[in-house]
Simulated assay, not measured.
Amino acid sequence: MSKDKTPHEKLWDMIKDIRFGMLTHRHADGGLHAHPLTTQNQALGEQGILYFFVSKATELGQRLQADGNVNVSYSDTHKDVYVSITGRAVVSNDRSAKERLFNPMTKAWFPGGVDDPDLELIEVHVVHAEYWSVKESKPTQLFKMAAAAVSGERPKMGEHKEVSV
């Protein structure tokens, strides 16, 4: 990634090819619940908002209206990229956003299109992100872990950073 990229661009580069994010929220009983959701964005704009379509039947939107503090995590085990995003979720009635984001795959879940009575748009306003990215090949990783096990020192692999958005 270029050093000239904004935090939004760096974050988007890491998650853009990961189809599903796990959105974790607080349930009414106080426990944490996670849902796999498809990120609808084509980019992460300067406002730093992630978009998800959900079903009103799940009551997820109601839970987020009660407590919008969420975490969205992404992982790509093939590329060894892991991202954790802290944000504030809101239910959006923005019709133009629904029209812009709606696609043929979404129609499988919401056959009525943007007017489907079960369709709900969730906006997650990114507050903070943290990522781990391992650039070393698998054999190099194994070698470093073996060397660390012998030496008693932690292996030094990859990159771990926090991004303020």
Score class of each variant (00 low, 15 high):
Gln62Trp: 04
Lys98Cys: 15
Asn103Phe: 04
Val54Ser: 10
Gly48Trp: 05
Pro36Glu: 12
His35Pro: 03
Lys107Val: 11
Ala108Glu: 09
Phe102Gln: 04
Gly87Asp: 00
Tyr74Met: 01
Val83Ala: 03
Ser84Lys: 06
Val91Ile: 14
Asn93Trp: 02
Arg88Val: 04
Asp94Gly: 08
Gln65Ser: 15
Gly48Glu: 01
Lys56Met: 06
Ile49Ser: 05
Thr106Asn: 02
Ser92Cys: 06
Leu101His: 05
Ser75Asp: 15
Val91Pro: 12
Ala43Val: 04
Asn93Cys: 08
Asn69Cys: 11
Phe53Val: 03
Gln40Asp: 07
Ser96Trp: 10
Asn71Lys: 09
Asp76His: 10
Pro104Ser: 09
Asn93His: 14
Gly61Val: 03
His33Pro: 00
Glu46Met: 08
Trp109His: 13
Met105Trp: 06
Val83Ser: 06
Ser73Leu: 08
Ser55Glu: 08
Gly45Lys: 02
Tyr51His: 07
Gln42Ala: 09
Asp80Lys: 14
Val83Gly: 00
His78Ser: 15
Ser96His: 13
Trp109Arg: 09
Leu50Arg: 01
Gly48Phe: 01
His78Thr: 14
Ala43Asp: 09
Phe102Tyr: 10
Ala89Lys: 07
Phe102Ser: 04
Ala108Leu: 13
Ile49Pro: 01
Tyr51Pro: 00
Gln65Pro: 07
Ser92Ala: 05
Phe52His: 03
Phe110His: 07
His78Trp: 13
Pro104Glu: 13
Thr38Asn: 05
Tyr51Phe: 14
